[in-house]
Design a protein around this nucleic acid. Sequence first.
DNA 1: TGTTGTTTGGAATTTTTTATTCCAACTGTT
DNA 2: AACAGTTGGAATAAAAAATTCCAAACAACA
Lengths: 286, 286
Amino acid sequence: MSILKKISAKLEVMAPADRQIGQFIVENPDQMLRLSSAALAAETGRSQSSVVKFSQKLGYAGYQELKLAVSEAKAQEWQAPAGMIHGTIEVDDGYLTILQKLLGSKLQAMQQTIAVNNEVDIGRALKALHEARRIHLAGVGASSLVARDFSYKLMKLGRIVLHDSDSHVQMANASTLGPDDLLFALSYSGASIETLRIAELASQRDATVIAVTGLQDNPLTRVADIRLYTVGDEDRVRSSAITARDAQLMLTDLLFILLVQRQPDAHDYVHNSEAAVSALKAKRLS
Amino acid sequence: MSILKKISAKLEVMAPADRQIGQFIVENPDQMLRLSSAALAAETGRSQSSVVKFSQKLGYAGYQELKLAVSEAKAQEWQAPAGMIHGTIEVDDGYLTILQKLLGSKLQAMQQTIAVNNEVDIGRALKALHEARRIHLAGVGASSLVARDFSYKLMKLGRIVLHDSDSHVQMANASTLGPDDLLFALSYSGASIETLRIAELASQRDATVIAVTGLQDNPLTRVADIRLYTVGDEDRVRSSAITARDAQLMLTDLLFILLVQRQPDAHDYVHNSEAAVSALKAKRLS
DNA sequence: TGTTGTTTGGAATTTTTTATTCCAACTGTT
DNA sequence: AACAGTTGGAATAAAAAATTCCAAACAACA
């Protein structure tokens, strides 16, 4: 436990002088780090020796050591935001609590998504993406945005990629798929009827189908050749599918990075792509 | 830049004594934190005064301040855990290393984005989003996807929102903005000419302008009434702007959640919206 | 090769900060 | 009231940090 929390917890059972000093430190740890023991004493209206004794009662050799501990605790606090409060965001949560919960939920979604996909399946997906003649991305709603993001990245690698936000167009495109082609279907529920139909069509036409869905049993996985999973918040109404999207992005980003790795000339492609966009900006600005 | 890196960089152009002291600090920052100036002098075979002077040459008031800076730097470093693991992904990294680096980069981008935006500015943005008659979202390329994601969410809250991925359409729409309207402009570089022009137009027409850009000085912030910042990886070619996008999403997600909080009937809106989509699915499936 | 100005870095000193000691005041107990 | 045990500040000792001062090393130049 962080020293700041430890102090907070003990605050009530402390003697008046210690409580006052402790309270100041808990409330203004940043300031405390810049104060000498005498200055801190003045700030709290106590004596310098009391400050030193306070430090020693907490188990440190002296004030300096306490400072070091506080500094470390402040760092730590950021790192694993306060117990990484996951849990639903409530109406009366303060700003900081919301921040922590949001970050915690996102992190958890990403970590769990990593955890549920084993390296073997990722590898198979990678191989399929790498060898496909043409890659078609399917997804509606929020999943469509992830699909588009992924398509931009794949294009940067020089791959032939297709995605349209209109599911009818997606369907029309899917009808042109062949055995050497790949359908990458994204749906958190795995039950979006448009995406499902497109996947079925692609499967009939012998294209390889990769499905990225949530863990629950769903029709889309049954059509797929390769199954990848995303883990998001259950309470999708409240979180408004934020974590589901983050999980999907985590997975597609991971696939992209791994693809870059196994494609020797990837860096050139990406670089050229960025350069082209930059050139566009420069030209227009002049 | 972290003080440790700053020292490393200057190491060659330093005088012998300073170099020796600097080197020790860079190599053993942990140990240095527990050493007094005299002890550090002994450790490096130099004089105590040289240690103090070294600190001052770096711009600190004295050794104590340098210590504090080093402690902070170490904290920062540790935030992207131990070599974490942030750092560029290399060609010969293993699967696990890549996972860690990717997750680390994402986490860091989100944390830093939280850190650079103070609650006051967020509050102002929130108020503007809350009171605006109409909200227009501007952004091209990857930022357009974030804008669209945000627009979907705002729509769920019953707000009047406009976004089109075509920048010409965005411009046309912006020309209809008035004093009660809001332009929310996203651009990581802050220099995308299309987004900039749209923001200028909106500003001329007296609409409130919120700019979400990277930290570097850029033209877009100069047009904006409210400035929010995102922190992403510097090496955008390699990471392919993954973290920049994550940072933008972190910010928009946060704004969304906070909006939900201050809008009493938000939950109903969101619920109805989700229900409508579900109904659509169910009907089609039957 | 001397002269001069500058930089470097340590010894000595002063100042500040930290840690310890000691004692008075208070608290609760018998 | 007497006692033991806390509590907390004043005074002091010890340690650490910062400044001053000066000598050696170095560089530029006549």
